[in-house]
Design a protein around this nucleic acid. Structure first.
Length: 888
RNA sequence: GGGCGGUUAGCUCAGCUGGGAGAGCAUCGGCCUUACAAGCCGAGGGUCACAGGUUCGAUCCCUGUACCGCCCACCA
């Protein structure tokens, strides 16, 4: 198919068509499909399933790029790789979307009824649920799409039921009337971590509660005065002498005809306010617990929508906030209001709709998490699971220590309906995987299933094994579980990651993943969270369209430094687009010269006999390969990206390609063949090394390489070859690059036109260096447009030259015209100042006895070398200054 | 109230286990040198937040301070 000749490489990389073309080919050829070859290692990742309602945002882009980098790398390393894709049914979010859709038709879900509504959600999912999956494909993700799962699909639902029933029978799931976080808008309970606390400016109301015998009053403070209607007690500290006498008297609750008791509880802080606390067990978590301890009545005063109920007496029917206003007015009017203060405090909001959450008692299902959490903690402690970066360990432990039972029931329709049935006749509760047909106790056929559904996180907690077929003992499960690594954002460490650990350890007796890599949150360039309302969102889809997918992926990888938020800026993305284009052009140039190159020959590169440029680039390539492996193993993605960037642009392009041009364009067939061979070898290695980060441009280039096979995706990833390490070549190359830098500097400073030919001289006292320079003089001349280069061990500097000092080598270029003596002297003086400073510093160290006796020998030798060099350079500078002054 | 992270060039950030401060962008000067002007060559720019301590030696380790950010928490 690739009959194209190298000449057909366009002048600039056109990503759009290339991306479409190769993704389609990869999919058609099933190169993403997992294979279970027992001879090879497995490497598996389960995707953090995006919400089915989701649209790809920059966080997804980061998360999935990193996963794809690892998957592609491991695939090329010969592993059986599996990346399981899928989406989450996202209970509340999805229900909201469909309800909004219904609202446009002036309908509510109640108009449809439960079954029809759920039908409607599935229909929505059918039509719109594939959006984010297609966007992941656009991003180049090499997921095994044949194994795409959905948390509500049949297999996963079965896993959910199995887990629920087993936990129930083990006594780890229970149903009870407890205080929960209630969203009055979503009409559902929320788990603790679905509540977001936000600091708000509020008021602290101080209310006088009269003693029942009329002998006085106590002042209590509250931020929610309407809850006083549900007060069933006042609590004070047991050791608080101020209130000891109230034990027998009681409190007459304002605006009501009730008398409530005073209880004594250690929870009360004596120093806060007056040391008296109003207790509303039905609408406050602490109060609830105080109430339990003292057997106080639980009096609910609001309904599920946050509207006051009959228990609120005359206030019934008022919204909770309207009621607050009225209560305050009434208290004021009747003289019960002591004072109102401004008060900043945290208010809990529903994480979905941001409605203020109302703590309230309600009949809910809970998981006893303590025994499960202990297993997860143990796995992290003993290293069966490694969290990266490690700094999260402590946060993880702290959270797990304080974990409370997990409220798993939600009063919505979209989700896994709880597999529990109650007998309408005898009230017997049955929890079963398969719906029972009659009551196990009284044989009645009148059974009602629990109407609540499970928290979405309940099903995603099973994701690493439910997607592999559990509870069936599938081949996949045996082969790919535990998965290799989980890559996700730290903000769902507790929502999701911890719960996967608990469930995996409990049900499979094995960790769900060996490594957890937590990446940062992507923020805007000012460090603000991206949000649609502030308009600071960088849309990855727009970025891909404008800069190309590879540029986006490279940016994400380069930014993925551990332990820090990412501030994304468009300028950086643009920079990486330039890099992708640079690669393209380097390949374009290379392919103009290596089309005749026989790949069979190039497999066995023997650098030992080759010219310096080749030995040098191969040695540098080797170091780069080593760093790529090491950094990926340590999840240092940014280091991988920068090592490749540095090598490709600043070593391969800037130096190597320029260096070998003379051979490629020259007459010497031997030299030319050698250059072609190495150029091919390095270019091939580069496209392979880059492929995990930038899959599209590399695949495209690959297909222009001689002898290429069908896809780069399954080529073997480069390994370091110790035979290519060449210290001598690296030293020589550094020397030559330094001298070239010197000559170029003179050219630039003296404003010699780049095309003008010059002559150059060098005085180099070190015999080894001198020999190297003489050997490689042609290279230096070629790269600096110098007609001649004369290297001497010593000698006098002719008049009328500009000079430059590199290490112990003095380089000078005779100038035809006059040089600007003043300018030259100024430049030298500046240089001299710097050197003197450095020399003084080094001298100081070397005259310090303690340094000499304590520092390791190699450091001392290094300092001595430095001092020699500084001294020599200073001498030369002084000589030059004198010479210039004579000239003036 | 606890816990965590940050403070390095004008901007955005690297800097792994302590041994002469780096990148990208931006800036200045010179180049359309037949891979690339999305480029090439050269240059300038930093008391590594502050104060102590450990060490022969600290951007790096320890203590404290100041700002900035995040997370957790039942002071009504």
């Amino acid at each position: 198919m690739e009959t194209s000749s190298p000449e057909t490489l366009a002048k600039a990389y056109e990503f759009s068509e290339v991306e479409k073309k190769w993704y389609a080919v990869w999919q058609a050829d099933k190169t993403f499909s997992a294979k279970m070859d027992p001879e090879r290692d497995s490497f598996s990742i389960v995707i953090p399933p995006p919400n089915v309602t989701g649209v790809l945002h920059v966080g997804h882009a980061l998360n999935n790029t990193l996963q794809d980098v690892l998957i592609r790398y491991k695939r090329m390393m010969g592993c059986n790789t599996l990346w399981v894709p899928g989406t989450d049914h996202a209970g509340i979010a999805t229900q909201n979307v469909v309800e909004r859709q219904l609202a446009t038709e002036n309908k509510s879900r109640h108009d449809l009824g439960r079954d029809n509504f759920i039908e409607r959600v599935w229909q929505w999912r059918e039509e719109k649920g594939g959006t984010i999956i297609n966007q992941l494909k656009h991003l180049g993700c090499s997921c095994d799409w044949e194994r795409e799962r959905f948390t509500m699909d049949e297999g996963l639902s079965k896993a959910v039921r199995t887990v629920f029933v087993r936990l129930f029978k083990e006594g780890l799931i229970y149903k009870g009337d407890y205080i929960v976080n209630w969203c009055p808008r979503c009409h559902t309970a929320l788990s603790d971590d679905e509540v977001e606390h936000e600091d708000k400016k509020g008021k602290l109301y101080h209310i006088r509660y009269p003693f029942a015998d009329g002998s006085g009053h106590v002042v209590v403070a509250t931020t929610r005065p309407e809850t006083m209607l549900g007060d069933t007690g006042v609590a004070v500290h047991p050791d608080d002498e101020r209130y000891a006498h109230l034990k027998e008297i009681g409190i007459s609750l304002p605006l009501t005809d009730r008398t409530i008791p005073v209880v004594f509880d250690h929870h009360v802080k004596r120093e806060f306010g007056t040391g008296a606390l109003k207790v509303t067990p039905a609408h406050d978590r602490d109060d609830y617990e105080i109430g339990l301890r003292h057997k106080l009545e639980i009096m609910k005063i609001m309904d599920n929508s946050g509207v006051m109920n009959e228990a609120a007496g005359p206030y019934a029917g008022l919204d909770r906030f309207a009621c607050r206003t009225k209560i305050v007015a009434d208290l004021e009017a009747q003289g019960f209001l002591d004072k109102i203060e401004d008060y900043d405090h945290a208010v809990g909001n529903c994480y979905r709709c941001h409605t203020v959450v109302e703590p309230t008692t309600s009949l809910q299902w809970f998981v006893s998490v303590r025994p499960l959490a202990d297993k997860a903690v143990a796995a992290v402690r003993d290293g069966r699971i490694n969290i990266h970066p490690k700094t999260w360990d402590n946060t993880f432990y702290a959270w797990m220590d304080n974990i409370r039972d997990w409220c798993i029931s939600r009063q919505i329709w979209w989700g896994h309906q709880i597999p529990a049935w109650t007998c309408d006749d005898c009230n017997h509760l049955m929890v079963e995987e398969v719906a029972p047909t009659s009551c196990q106790k009284c044989q009645s056929k009148n059974l009602s299933q629990e109407s609540d559904v499970l928290d979405t996180w309940f099903s995603s907690a099973l994701w690493p094994f439910s997607t592999l077929g559990w509870p069936e003992q599938t081949e996949e499960l045996k082969f790919f579980y535990p998965t290799s690594v989980l890559i996700t954002s730290f903000d769902i460490l507790f929502f999701w990651v911890a719960r996967m650990m608990m469930m995996g350890l409990h049900f499979l007796d094995e960790v769900p993943f060996k490594d957890v890599y937590l990446h940062a949150l992507v923020r805007d360039k000012d460090g603000k969270k991206m949000s649609k309302s502030t308009g600071n969102v960088i849309d990855p889809l727009v970025v891909m369209a404008e800069y190309g997918t590879d540029a986006l992926r490279y940016t994400m990888t380069a930014f993925a430094a551990q332990g820090r938020d990412i501030r994304l800026s468009e300028e950086r993305i643009e920079g990486y687009r330039h890099f992708i284009n640079k690669i393209w052009n380097a390949a374009r140039f290379s392919l103009m010269h290596i089309d005749a190159c026989d790949p069979a020959v190039t497999k066995d590169v023997q650098p030992a006999t080759m010219a310096l440029a080749h030995r040098w680039i191969l040695s540098r390539l080797n170091k780069t390969i080593t760093e790529v492996h090491a950094s990926l193993a340590g999840f240092r993605f940014n280091d991988t990206a920068s090592a490749l960037y540095q090598f490709i642009w600043h070593e391969f392009c800037d130096w190597y390609l320029e260096w070998i041009k003379s051979d490629l364009y020259g007459e010497d067939a031997g030299k030319k063949a050698e250059a072609q061979t190495v150029l091919f070898t390095v270019l091939e290695a580069i496209v392979k090394l880059l492929h995990p980060i930038a899959p599209f441009v590399t695949e495209e280039i690959w297909h222009f390489l001689p002898g290429h096979r069908p896809t780069l995706m399954t080529e073997s990833f480069p390994l370091a070859n110790p035979a290519w390490d060449d210290q001598e070549a690296e030293e020589s190359a550094e020397l030559i690059k330094g001298v070239i830098g010197g000559i170029r500097n003179i050219r630039s400073e003296m404003q010699i036109h780049p095309s003008a030919e010059i002559e150059a001289f060098a005085i180099c006292p070190d015999p080894l260096k001198q020999q190297r320079l003489q050997t490689h003089a042609p290279s230096i001349m070629g790269l600096t447009r110098t007609a001649s280069l004369d290297v001497q061990a010593s000698g006098t500097v002719p008049q009328g030259t500009a000079n430059y000092i590199f290490e112990d080598i003095e380089i000078f270029v005779p100038l035809k015209g006059l040089i600007d003596v003043e300018k030259e002297i100024a430049k030298l003086n500046k240089n001299k100042e710097k050197l003197e400073k450095q020399a003084a510093q080094t001298k100081g160290k070397l005259s310090n006895e303690k340094f000499l006796s304590n520092a390791p020998d190699d450091i001392i030798a290094k300092e001595n070398g430095k001092l020699d060099e500084f001294t020599l350079q200073l001498t030369k500078i002084d000589e030059t200054i004198v010479r210039l002054q004579e000239l003036a």
